[in-house]
Design a protein around this nucleic acid. Sequence first.
DNA 1: AAGGTTATGTGAATGTGAACACAAGAACTA
DNA 2: TAGTTCTTGTGTTCACATTCACATAACCTT
Lengths: 185, 185
Amino acid sequence: MANEAGALCISSTNLAEFIGVNSCQIRKDFSYFGYLGIRGSGYNIEKLIKKIKSILKITVVQKAALVGVGNLGSAILSFPGFAVYGFNIAAAFDVSPQKIGKKINNVKIENISKLWILKRKKVNLAILAVPSEAAQSTTEKLVKAGVKGILNFSSCYLSVPKKVKVITTDIAMELARLPYYIPAG
Amino acid sequence: MANEAGALCISSTNLAEFIGVNSCQIRKDFSYFGYLGIRGSGYNIEKLIKKIKSILKITVVQKAALVGVGNLGSAILSFPGFAVYGFNIAAAFDVSPQKIGKKINNVKIENISKLWILKRKKVNLAILAVPSEAAQSTTEKLVKAGVKGILNFSSCYLSVPKKVKVITTDIAMELARLPYYIPAG
DNA sequence: AAGGTTATGTGAATGTGAACACAAGAACTA
DNA sequence: TAGTTCTTGTGTTCACATTCACATAACCTT
């Protein structure tokens, strides 16, 4: 687990066990990014984390905006997990006058008509948690505001220019996949 | 769009456009489940939905339990999207005495020590929204209670018996994937 | 220091999924 | 009814991802 220099190491076998895949998959995948490991001892954990962070481009704090502060949006604002990857929710937006002006987790909720400030604030990423009906139109505003990546929680396909990347997570659909794997009875 | 019988149809090309994939992908995938379409007109929408629901085994209302009624859990309880696929949140559990006994969206929050009632209630599915530290131990209780499928929102790998299916959705990791696609600048 | 052990990195084989191209069938038109 | 237009379903090709197996290298123990 530790090499000569005292640095903590982990083997592909160990990593594979932790996440439930084959060990050579780990090695093959890592090898695409160069010689990360040391034969006989494994992968230097610190170096590995740095390398993966640099591949994902999360070496510096990334700013993200939250659009739609409903139930899910509020949960996201209070979610502590983003810090792990160095994310910072720099702004939040909603249409509801009752919400605008309030603060959740130290983030002030702005009027959604002010999405354009994202350009000035140089916020590249947005988390979209608005109702499906509003998803496409809001997306277009986000694109205009210079957003380059959208994490979409609404259950619909978003049409965007090629330069913009969308990742969609449909919670209900994930749940709907489960029964398929479960034998009847 | 409509065949002789007046039933509404949709072509693979149309479907493909809607969800942003290649049309032959649609046809190939559907063909694995038999002759679903009609040459010249397309796929009968109603029949198609029924077929997909039967493949996913969501033809009848599926009961699911929510475990962990924190920010995310509360959002999930209030989430209207599950109804689309015929899901019913039949029970909710938490450890916090302040939450136990309260109702959200007409679902009463039970003490997590009562997870065993899921067996009697014949609830097969669980949505896990507890802190990562508690995820594995809670999972084991769920498995004991007869749960066969778990939708896991905590950011860790869950070790379960082979007969149990886990689908993990790590919101922070999804967001962490975005910067990778975005050119620096 | 030398031999044994451990673990990486990779060529080759295998498996899987996507794309292409087209034959065949259904609907529509005149 | 005959010909034209759609659209499915599929054989084939291509591309990619996973797994196997092992040579190579670093570490460890005596």
